[in-house]
Design a protein around this nucleic acid. Structure first.
Lengths: 138, 138
DNA sequence: CCCTACAATAGACATTGTCTAAGTCAAGCC
DNA sequence: GGCTTGACTTAGACAATGTCTATTGTAGGG
């Protein structure tokens, strides 16, 4: 559970009630929450936490590489606590649900030099889109 | 150039000065503009066009399948007039520049059934990220 | 040349995120 | 344990992007 808290403490992170709560929310959820959802859950545990603090803390966690920012829709960034295993995403076009997926193959190898236009390419994101079983049933 | 206008007219699109201007802006640019950039260029040709009209028209063009919405950063949607040839994107992490690319391989085939979680998967977006030659030089 | 339905407009509103100035507190030090 | 200090938190203003509504305008058919 609190490997995350341990790691952060070990890196000299000043531990406050607010930061602990945000880290716990992320650590406890295996879904990909928006900043607002994180805030809502954090408020449930610590009513006086402010929106700015949640944004700040999420930003710090991203900088530290403990959490990934995911942009699968335009509406809001989502935060992915699974930062330590590379993966891609499968998104429901209707309800926005996200699952982590691990496709085979290496898309980086699929981009020939002639298509790189002099860029130094360092990363690929693959987003699969479709309809989830729930939405298909409805 | 105005295959686009022709096609739209043929589909019963009611032609107005505003719509023509928006279509022309997209048709003339080979870059990927944000809604605001489209608006700015449209205003240059037709000063009294409103922001809402630009948003409406872009939305209609997307619905008609004449233009693609691209979400490479979180800030603003970008509109890609190259809707008729499938392609992916290469984005500069520093300045946001976008190039269309055509990788080999088919990422859809790289997602095994066991990783589909019952979704009906219909589409894949691949976004390569890196640093463009300009930014690398700076 | 008129109607009428569809389109455009201005501006309010909503959502998401950022910034600032002031107050508060964790953690090191004695 | 009790200071001190700089980092952290807060409320709320602000910014960027996008949506909605009520009103006015107009394209295109008769």
């Amino acid at each position: 559970m609190s490997d995350l808290l341990e790691r952060l403490r070990g890196r000299g992170w000043r531990m406050t009630a607010q930061r602990r709560v945000v880290a716990e929310v992320l650590d406890g959820e295996h879904v990909h929450l928006t900043a607002d959802e994180v805030h809502a859950r954090a408020v449930a545990k610590l009513p006086e936490i402010s929106r700015a603090t949640v944004y700040n803390t999420l930003g710090e966690l991203v900088s530290l590489g403990e959490v990934l920012e995911v942009a699968t829709d335009q509406r809001a960034k989502r935060y992915d606590p699974n930062a330590h295993r590379p993966h891609h995403h499968l998104v429901c076009a209707r309800c926005g649900a996200i699952r982590d997926v691990h496709p085979t193959g290496n898309p980086l190898a699929d981009l020939p030099d002639s298509e790189r236009y002099g860029f130094t390419v360092s990363d690929v994101e693959v987003t699969y889109r479709g309809i989830c079983p729930n939405c298909a049933a409805a």
